[in-house]
Computed example of a mutant assay.
Amino acid sequence: MCDTLNNDYHLHEELGRGRFGVVHRCYSPISSSSFACKSIAKRALSSDPTDRRCLDVEPKILRLLSACPHVLRLHAVYDNDDYLHLVTDLCDGGDLYDRLASGCRFSERDAAAVLRQLMSAVASCHRAGVAHRDIKPDNILFDSRGRLQLADFGSAEVFGGGATPPEMSGVVGTPYYVAPEVLLGGNYDEKVDVWSAGVILYMMLAGVPPFYGDGPAETFEAVVRERLRFPTKIFRSVSPEVKDLLRKMICRDVYRRFSADQVLRHPWMINGGETALKEE
């Protein structure tokens, strides 16, 4: 497609930037609606195929997931020699990172509301044969009505399509949130997304990640080696039901780790964060 972005949309203020692109608010005079435009400067990418794969992967996967709930919707793609522009829904309600960075501690009911929307998106992605592979608070956006939208599929991978179990490889993801099997090398499956979502649930309730260190290397070592803990000072008022769910999401045994659909069927999720049991 030729680059006619400026003919169709008017670019306005910058909304944010990441490793591969800059996001601006844009306006369509045809529809009288506002959108977001993610622009990736091709010359800024290294020659590493891992970096350049985002040019092909993200548009392809966003089109594949166009009908999935709580996944950022792609409206248009403009591609030329210098830039790739992706026009998507506008999420002007901020992101989960900002809410966590402000020191916000979520009630169980509020955490369940966020997790339900996130896992609905993840389960739909997995049923479509897509693993996100970089779920983190920065990529969890909210629109003006407070509805969650999962964004940034530049590290995503398509899996499945055969009778064998889905397998992926390659170290991708972000410290704090990446699953241990990704760091250990070899093949892994889509449950890496469930681990990442479990870490986010832990952070919403505790205000701190379950595994961390002084710098990425120490954080990765903690993810691989340390045991999941619930410090009494932080988790005294947290219910046994949500601790049970966390153990099943942040589970090193991939075969025992919950799938996205199993998370949605857990009693704590079904009850919307309302709990009936007392800590023994």
Score class of each variant (00 low, 15 high):
192 V>Y: 06
17 R>F: 08
49 P>T: 07
166 P>T: 05
58 E>A: 08
237 S>E: 12
200 I>T: 02
115 L>M: 15
236 R>F: 11
104 C>N: 11
43 R>T: 15
147 R>Q: 14
196 S>T: 03
209 P>C: 05
171 V>W: 10
271 N>T: 12
165 P>T: 04
264 L>A: 12
122 V>H: 07
270 I>N: 05
275 T>R: 04
109 R>T: 14
182 V>H: 07
161 G>C: 06
227 R>L: 13
204 M>N: 03
175 P>K: 09
169 S>L: 05
106 F>G: 03
129 G>S: 09
76 A>E: 05
261 D>Q: 12
169 S>I: 06
217 A>S: 14
97 Y>S: 11
28 S>H: 02
84 L>E: 03
234 I>G: 02
151 A>S: 15
148 L>C: 06
176 Y>W: 11
246 L>W: 00
124 S>I: 08
64 L>V: 08
111 A>K: 05
273 G>C: 09
128 A>I: 08
48 D>S: 12
89 D>A: 01
156 A>M: 07
167 E>Y: 08
47 S>Q: 15
256 R>A: 15
140 I>T: 10
200 I>K: 00
93 G>W: 08
234 I>Y: 03
35 F>I: 00
18 G>Q: 05
273 G>I: 07
43 R>D: 14
54 C>H: 07
109 R>P: 07
23 V>D: 01
67 A>Q: 15
104 C>H: 14
275 T>V: 14
278 K>D: 11
158 V>G: 04
197 A>I: 04
13 E>G: 04
188 Y>M: 08
162 G>C: 08
65 L>V: 11
18 G>F: 07
190 E>S: 13
53 R>C: 12
176 Y>R: 05
20 F>N: 06
185 G>D: 04
185 G>A: 07
16 G>A: 04
92 D>W: 03
118 L>W: 09
179 A>L: 09
188 Y>R: 10
67 A>P: 05
29 P>T: 02
69 P>A: 03
198 G>E: 00
242 V>K: 00
25 R>I: 04
6 N>E: 13
85 H>S: 06
